[in-house]
Write a protein that binds this DNA or RNA. Structure first.
Lengths: 153, 153
DNA sequence: CCGTATCCATTCCGATACTG
DNA sequence: CAGTATCGGAATGGATACGG
């Protein structure tokens, strides 16, 4: 399950992708965030093979993004719920959803999305801000000086 | 290069991951956003095999996230630069960076990050807001009703 | 209903060598 | 410097069968 060691362990993005960068993981988080808690529900939603799902869930438990909890209802089975660490990925998914709507529109209509449970409406698009609060465009972003020097670009 | 067709083509997140969900793509976007434009610079930064890099870049050109442009300096070689579509992924990377710093701290120090080129400081952490502007926590998020009904959870 | 184990096909990636 | 071609090994994912 381990990929090749990333060349740049110091990069937080690379470290994040080392945890959630593989194919299914973010989709599992998506479903968990939407309220899915049970193995078979994940399986129905994702259409993933059961063994792959099992491997993903186990990895996410080990990494501390999910935890197993006794059933909240009367059921006999454990539930998978996001930890705070897992919940913290919500902005990533919101952004991916927004990007998909804007830039990866398929033939099908946009159906399943996240909503605010209070208002039943989608969250606002997240906007980048500089440290002093000014709106930031992608072209205002640049790699840190240390990085640019290290790789000479 | 095509993976299995996702069961839920209507989901914008799944569609996004269909484009940028594989292992190297987001790291290529990261470097492009940081200011990398040349093949060998990408290769140095990523430590990826040259053929893999070639495949990723070609795919990104086809998908319209990158475009090839004549050199801005006197050089003889083309440059890879992000299109607006590619730039629109910046929030995703900012979020992943923030998550990595907070939740995937390794032994190494955090080194390479994005900065605002004007202030030389990191962008603010993006916060989720509901449609009426109120701050939103991950637990306030839920899957849309259509989705919940379709998969019965 | 909830998972794990086995098997097999495919894909992906890295190393290397080669061309312009 | 900027890629492409080929090859072999590793990891992933799907189908299926099996036990809790």
């Amino acid at each position: 399950m381990e990929r090749k060691r990333l060349p740049n362990d110091a990069c937080p993005i690379a470290r994040s992708l080392d945890v959630v960068g593989d194919w299914w993981t973010l989709l599992v988080i998506r479903d968990a965030l939407a309220g899915v808690t049970r193995f078979n529900t994940f399986q129905r939603c994702l259409g993933v093979a059961r063994n792959s799902l099992s491997a993903r869930l186990t990895a996410l438990l080990e990494r501390g993004l999910l935890e197993k909890r006794p059933p909240s209802d009367g059921s006999a089975f454990m539930e998978y719920v996001l930890t705070a660490k897992g919940q913290a990925l919500a902005p990533v998914l919101i952004d991916l959803e927004q990007w998909g709507i804007t830039h990866a529109r398929g033939s099908a209509k946009n159906a399943p999305t996240f909503v605010d449970r209070r208002t039943n409406r989608r969250p606002r698009t997240l906007r980048m801000q500089s440290s002093d609060g000014k709106l930031l465009h992608a072209s205002d972003i640049v790699g840190s000086q240390a990085w640019r020097e290290r790789f000479r670009f």
